[in-house]
């Protein structure tokens, strides 16, 4: 959440937020991402579309450092981050809302914000915290509540708030719509332009075509761990090949 005109954002106007070159990754004997390349421009909302098993979650986990790539390179604003352990990728400026949310069920909302806030500079910490509690007023009312006792929608807000507390330059969101009521899903997606306006680049993995394409600037369509289509979200929305890929035609 770098603010407009602050020193950290002045040199990044043209450098892409994320550059992936020929990235391969997998689990055990299984290769899931094959020679995948993509560029995420700074201050854009990028959606990664794909059917179940296309490799969306693996892609985000690889960028976040939870899964070391077998080959290829990943750069954050030109700085290589592949091969770094996940906590250092977080500290380098990547906020991750992982699939399954990965919250700490017995810890309170305040604890989540406090733990993640350690990554941000002390002066930013208070500022971000106030912004987040304004953005998600429900959390302000439930600061002391253990998150395991909260609803799915509230937990999703905690997961997003936790990722934003690290003051990221890039936010990765893994299927934020999973298990949420349509109204809550819209609320989550409506926060994305706010983040973009504050200088954060957003990468959303999403299964729903209409939802993904209507809220993003650019889109990548993944199939079997490869990028099969990419372009402006508004153009891809008109492209029948997107639906063909989904249906396996």
């Amino acid at each position: 959440m770098t603010l407009e005109g602050s020193p950290a954002s002045s040199h990044v106007v043209d450098t892409p937020a994320l550059t992936l070159e020929n990235v391969s990754a997998g689990i055990g004997p299984l290769t899931i991402l094959h020679d995948l390349s993509m560029v995420v421009p700074a201050r854009k909302i990028v959606v990664v579309l794909g059917a179940n098993g296309a490799g969306k979650t693996t892609l985000l986990r690889t960028i976040a450092g939870l899964l070391p790539p077998r080959s290829g390179s990943i750069c954050l604003f030109g700085e290589p981050i592949h091969g770094r352990p996940a906590h250092l990728v977080t500290r380098a400026g990547i906020g991750h809302v992982p699939s399954g949310r990965e919250l700490f069920p017995r810890l309170s909302v305040a604890d989540h914000l406090e733990l993640a806030g350690k990554v941000a500079s002390p002066s930013r910490r208070t500022e971000i915290r106030e912004q987040l509690l304004e953005m998600f007023p429900v959390l302000a009312e439930r600061l002391r509540q253990p998150v395991g006792t909260m609803s799915g929608g509230q937990q999703q807000m905690v997961a997003i708030a936790r990722a934003l507390m690290t003051d990221p330059r890039v936010l990765l969101l893994d299927e934020p719509s999973t298990g949420l009521a349509p109204k809550v899903v819209l609320a989550v997606f409506e926060t994305l332009p706010v983040l973009r306006a504050q200088g954060v680049s957003v990468v959303v993995a999403e299964q729903s075509l209409t939802l993904g394409l209507s809220h993003a600037d650019e889109a990548f369509v993944l199939d079997h761990g490869r990028v099969v289509l990419s372009g402006a979200a508004s153009e891809l929305a008109q492209d029948h090949r997107v639906i063909d890929t989904y249906l396996g035609r």
């Binding site: 906590h87 977080t90 990965e102 810890l107 993640a116 990554v119 690290t166």
Partner: peptide
């Protein structure tokens, strides 16, 4: 409670 979540908070 969640090693992945902890790493997402920058915890080693």
């Amino acid at each position: 409670q969640s090693p992945v979540g902890a790493a997402c908070c920058g915890i080693n």
